[in-house]
Nucleic acid binder design. Sequence first.
DNA 1: AGGTGCGCCTGGAGGC
DNA 2: TGCCTCCAGGCGCACC
Length: 273
Amino acid sequence: MPELPEVETSMRGLASAIQGRELKRVRAMRADLRFPLPAGFSDRLQGRTVEGLERRAKYILVRLTGGLTWLIHLGMSGRLIVGKGHLPSLEKHDHVTIETTSGYVIYQDARRFGFMDLFEARAELSHPRLKDLGLEPLTDLSISSLASVLKGRSSSVKAALLDQRLIAGLGNIYVSEALFRAKVRPERAAGMLTRSEIKRLVKAIPEVLAEAIKAGGSSLRDYRQPSGELGYFKASWAVYGREGQACIHCRKGVVARVVQSGRSSFYCPKCQR
DNA sequence: AGGTGCGCCTGGAGGC
DNA sequence: TGCCTCCAGGCGCACC
C-alpha cells in the first residue's frame, strides 16, 4: 500500500495514540509477519514509554525509553488502527495489539508483507533496512542532490525514482504522479534528464507528497488513516489508474500505461516527453 | 549496473 | 453462486 504519504499519515495517527504513553500490554497473534518478529517482541516493548515517533522513507520508528526503537514497515496492506477505550474483538488479519491506559493500537495486515523489528540505538546506523536508504524526498531534495543520484544511470527514471537506495519513500503511485507533474516520461533514461527536467522533479516530488499527506494519503484497497477515515488523495490522481482517459491537463492526450519491470506506469504522451 | 521474473500472501474484480 | 485468472501501494533475490 503505503508509500511515503500513507506512512506519514499512519505515523501521525499512531503518535496520537501512543506518544508519551506507556505500552501497557503488547500482544502478537502470530510469530511472524513477512519475517519472524524479533525474539521477545512483546516483552521487550511492554512497560516502555514512547518518547517520540519518526518516519524515515516508508518506515515508522517508535522511540522508546531505554534506548529501544520499534521499527514498523507496512508492506502492501499493513494498517495501523487506533482507538480509545478497550481493545475491540479482533478481526482475521489483526496481528499485533498494543494497549495503553486510554486506548489501543491494532496492526492489521491481510497480505502480511509488512514487518517489524526492534533495535538498540547503537545498531541504527548499520541496520540492514535503514543503512542504504537514499534521499528523504521532503527534506533532502535539491537540484544537485537529485542530479547526483541520477547521474550516469542508464536505467529508466521510473526505476530510479522507485529505487529506495537513491530516493526513499516513493512508490508506484507517486512516481507516476510526480513524473506527470514534471512532464517527464517514465521510460526516459535517468542519467539523460536535462537540468530543467531535474528542477521540475525537485519541485514536483515534494509537492505531490505534501498534497497527499494533507489529504490523508490515497485509499486504494487496504489503506485507511489510523482513525479509520479514508485517504482522499486518490481523487487527485492525474494519471495513476487512468489508462485510456483524457489527460486532465492538456485534455487531448490519452493516458497511457506501460509495464516496466512488471509494474504499471501511467503517463500522458502529449504532456510528458 | 541494468533488466526481468518470481515469491511472499490475501482478497477484490471481472469473465464465464 | 462458484470457479478461474489477473491484479494490487513493497521488497528481496536469483538469474541474465
